[in-house]
Simulated scan of single mutants.
Amino acid sequence: MKIKVKTFSELTKQELYDLLQLRSEVFVVEQDCVYQDIDGKDQKALHVLGFKNNKLIAYTRVFKPGDYFNEASIGRVVVAKKERQFKYGFDIMEASIKAIKDHYNETLIKISAQCYLKKFYKDLGFKEKGEEYLEDDIPHIAMVKD
C-alpha cells in the first residue's frame, strides 16, 4: 500500500471524492448508520490516504491538538471491506501516528474508538480512558497513546 499525507487544499477533486465515497461506503452503508460525515472538520485535518493499484483502500484524518480534542487525534479510520484481510488498518494507523509526529511533533494521541475495535487499537499502543459511550448509536470508548 502506498501512503500519501495531504492537507485539505492539497487533495485533488478525485481524491476528495474517493475518500468521501469510502467513508460513506463503510460508515453509512456497511454500518447502517445515518450520521453527518461531512462535518466541517475536513478542512482542518491532514488526510492520510492508502492506495493499492492506484485505488484508495484505506484512509484516516488526523488533527493537531485543539482542532478536535485537546490532544492530537486520529479519526475516520477506514479500510475497504475487501481489503481488511491484508492488515492495512495497522499500516494506515502507523502512517497516521507518524504523520502526527512529523507534522505536529506530538506523541500524545486521543481517539474515539468503536468498542469492537478495542483490541486493534490496544495492539497499536492505545489504552482505554473512561467509560463507554454512544456516538451515533454505536458504542465507543476514548483511547489514548503517549
Rank of each mutant, 00 (worst) to 15 (best):
90 F>V: 14
97 I>M: 09
1 M>S: 10
12 T>L: 07
74 I>H: 06
59 Y>V: 04
115 C>T: 13
103 H>W: 13
83 E>A: 12
12 T>P: 02
111 I>D: 01
1 M>A: 10
6 K>E: 00
102 D>M: 08
84 R>N: 04
73 S>Q: 03
70 N>D: 15
37 D>P: 04
104 Y>G: 10
6 K>W: 00
139 P>W: 01
32 D>F: 10
95 A>H: 08
136 D>N: 11
52 K>V: 10
64 K>T: 01
4 K>Y: 11
16 L>N: 10
53 N>D: 15
144 V>I: 15
63 F>V: 06
33 C>V: 08
62 V>T: 11
128 E>T: 14
80 A>V: 10
68 Y>V: 08
3 I>L: 10
110 K>Y: 05
4 K>T: 09
83 E>R: 09
11 L>Q: 06
7 T>V: 06
104 Y>H: 13
129 K>E: 15
120 F>P: 03
20 L>N: 07
20 L>W: 03
123 D>S: 14
23 R>Q: 00
60 T>K: 05
113 A>D: 05
42 D>E: 09
14 Q>M: 10
77 V>W: 00
72 A>D: 06
29 V>T: 07
38 I>T: 02
55 K>G: 05
125 G>E: 08
109 I>H: 03
140 H>Y: 07
96 S>Y: 02
24 S>W: 00
49 L>V: 01
53 N>K: 11
99 A>R: 08
52 K>C: 09
7 T>I: 01
123 D>M: 11
2 K>L: 11
75 G>V: 00
102 D>P: 04
135 E>V: 02
93 M>Q: 14
143 M>S: 02
121 Y>L: 00
144 V>M: 15
85 Q>T: 12
100 I>E: 03
8 F>Q: 05
13 K>P: 09
